[in-house]
Design a binder for these strands. Structure first.
Lengths: 225, 225
DNA sequence: AAGTGCTTTTAGCAAGTGCTTAAATTCCCC
DNA sequence: GGGGAATTTAAGCACTTGCTAAAAGCACTT
């Protein structure tokens, strides 16, 4: 089972890409080794020769995505300049850019997360660096604990972005525009930007209010003493 | 296939509840008619006697949820008083309350939506009244089109609420608190309230800015003429 | 030509799937 | 208690699944 399964191996790559394409159509349970082999144009047994098991194959597929994901965010982070608000927008853009370029990815992750705890650990493992990345980026902006902690903001922003991709196909019958089209995508991106602004502005306003309250309390104490 | 499958039929109800419990563990593909029958303590063939097919069974399970969901929101709407902000909070609370009381539901919907387009139409069908409900509730607050239209706000709020339930199990390794526990749930609710406030406040602030711009523009036109 | 190590193919097992059919059972009205 | 309908059961069909073992093909060195 120690076969080279990276891009240097042509057969393994063909299998990976076939699995990637098929996964989004039916989740992991809708995926059969035979279908993958047929799509890749190789023999069924080769799937197991290269990846050991179906689970192993799927794990490699999502590993590949997360590698690209982390790389994309890292290179975006390096290029970030300007004030905090601009940097927040750049972060969100990098995130949305990746999802737009890999529309299958958020659906795949959601599908795997939904198909029982078999993949929870794996996804959590890959999610961790991204989570830490956001945590670091929000240092000084968000409090350490409570309803505005980085963890909550992370869940919200990632939920807002990724849930778009799972909800869009359901909205087809409700919307005039095609929710999967580029116009709707641009509109969604503008909405997310607006939302980030709304959160940022309230965060700042709350902090101002709190410090004013502090000042008033300090004043009252001084007057009282 | 015209058997009574509502609450009056004990056997059908047992099957429904068994399916409901099992669905969350493995999605629709992880669900087998035999497992349902065993869990319900009935014969395997009865599943098909009452529900025709596995697909039919699952459809009834989610129908039941959506019936309760709509009922819960309707009774909450009736009891809503106060200003707009208070009503928005009440809406969100009713929504979160339902999800907290039926934690399997958001995961089930996500699981089905993720397992291919077979259920897209059905979910979209049940989602429609809720979507219209939000659209109506946001009348006068949100513009008709663009990035702040009710449709975008709907996707965002429902995404923020439901994605919590799919992400919580993944956060277990990253958090100090148990994300599935009641404390984290309360914190999440507070976060969603805060988020709704942030959106509401920015919506109001944007409207003020826009009308001031309008006034300035009108003034300029008058002076120019 | 024989041997070597990797890759691919063939063929199939064992288990599980959705679903059907026909017989057995229970229920209820007369 | 008889008879017809509704319900429940046992048994199995036809098919797909993940996965494996053994053989075959291949390029390569010696």
């Amino acid at each position: 089972m120690n076969r080279p399964t990276d891009e240097r191996n042509e057969t393994a790559t063909k299998i990976l890409e076939a699995a990637d394409e098929l996964l989004v159509e039916g989740g992991i349970d809708g995926l059969s080794s035979r279908a993958v082999a047929t799509r890749a144009g190789v023999n069924n047994a080769l799937v197991f020769y290269y990846f050991g098991s179906k689970q192993g194959l799927v794990e490699r597929v999502i590993e590949r995505y997360y590698q690209r994901h982390v790389a994309a965010l890292e290179s975006a982070t390096d290029a970030m300049t300007g004030d905090l608000r601009a940097r927040l927008h750049a972060m969100v853009d990098a995130y949305v850019d990746f999802m737009e370029a890999h529309r299958r990815f958020p659906r795949l992750v959601q599908s795997l997360a939904a198909s029982g705890p078999a993949f929870h650990e794996l996804i959590g493992h890959h999610m961790a660096p991204l989570y830490r990345w956001v945590e670091r980026a929000l240092e000084g902006v968000a409090p350490k604990t409570g309803p505005l902690a980085a963890g909550q903001l992370y869940v919200t922003v990632s939920g807002v972005v990724t849930s778009w991709y799972s909800q869009a196909p359901l909205l087809a019958a409700l919307w005039d525009k095609d929710p999967e089209g580029p116009e709707a995508g641009a509109e969604r991106r503008a909405h997310v930007h607006w939302l980030v602004d709304a959160m940022y502005e309230k965060l700042v306003a709350d902090a101002r209010t709190a410090s004013r309250d502090d000042a008033r309390r300090t004043l009252a104490e001084r007057e009282g003493g």
